[in-house]
Design a protein around this nucleic acid. Structure first.
Ligand code: ZN
Ligand code: ZN
Ligand code: ZN
Ligand code: ZN
Lengths: 146, 146
DNA sequence: GACCTTATTGATAACTTTTTTCATTAAGCT
DNA sequence: AGCTTAATGAAAAAAGTTATCAATAAGGTC
């Protein structure tokens, strides 16, 4: 189901700002802050109030159409969400964030921790950090040049 | 090594504000925001500028003595860090955060994702969410009363 | 313990980010 | 095309964070 349909079927309108924000995030793998989104859209001739960016993000996040990605330094940004349970792997060099399916097997870990802490685990947050293929290549080339 | 020693050995002084913040976080399992820390300390007769809270947290985080815990809603707070590689499990009811050792086995997951995405994985962020033993009991009791 | 040096603090102000308010606009429906 | 009302934009308020600099106190020396 397209994000337009998700909006409609939940009784929300497919408005300009929502479309701009969604399309921008879909076209850009780097997580973006509200301000960055506002600036990018303004520069590309899609003037909208920054307030609308905040409101669009709030709604899109609620509907699971975008999600937050945390950087190791604690800063965070939004990326277009893949829908369903998934996680992101983030490049520490170019900050690109790629989703990977949540079919991971954490069950043995979760069982161990449940036994250890007596907690009941029902959810989790997982992100991987590393270097993307492009940056691996770029970094390797840079070394060669020396 | 105690956090006092970590400060000293890195050339930092064990000052009042740093002590206040560290002791508060050590005595409180719930992640706290800078403002919450400031208010709690003010109320308990340890007046300090909120600026000092920010500065203390920045330094303590850099030294790995405190760390950030993310709530499912995107908000975040600081808890006293256990040192070394570890993660937190957070109670969705009382927000208590307990550390668990990072001896988890994510290697098969990481290998799968590396193959899938061609990324080189070098780090990760993992948090579990659930219900702590106390809250399990409290919630069960609440049901019985009906 | 008194004294010295200098890292650290606190108060203020500046700045950034987020939320509120409300009149105006436009999305979706008929 | 016209209607209804959700959604937007501009401005202001509120909240959160960072910068500045004189005053303070931590840690070392005598
Ligand atoms: Zn990269
Ligand atoms: Zn998962
Ligand atoms: Zn609990
Ligand atoms: Zn780990």
């Amino acid at each position: 189901m397209s994000w337009q349909n998700v909006l409609s079927e939940n009784g929300y309108r497919v408005s300009g700002p929502r479309r701009y924000v969604m399309q921008l995030l879909e076209s850009n793998a780097q997580p973006m802050t509200p301000l960055e989104i506002y600036q990018a859209l303004s520069e590309s001739g899609r003037p909208l109030g920054i307030v609308s960016v905040y409101r669009a993000l709030e709604l899109l996040a609620e509907l699971g159409l975008v999600c937050m990605v945390y950087n190791p330094d604690g800063s965070a940004g939004y990326v277009a969400g893949a829908g369903g349970h998934h996680h992101h792997i983030v490049c520490q060099n170019c900050h690109r964030a790629i989703a990977f399916a949540g079919s991971e097997d954490l069950s043995s870990l979760i069982q161990r921790v449940e036994k250890e802490t007596k907690f009941h685990v029902s959810d989790h947050l997982l992100q991987l950090y590393g270097i993307c293929p492009d940056c691996q290549k770029a970094l390797a080339d840079a070394v060669e040049e020396n």
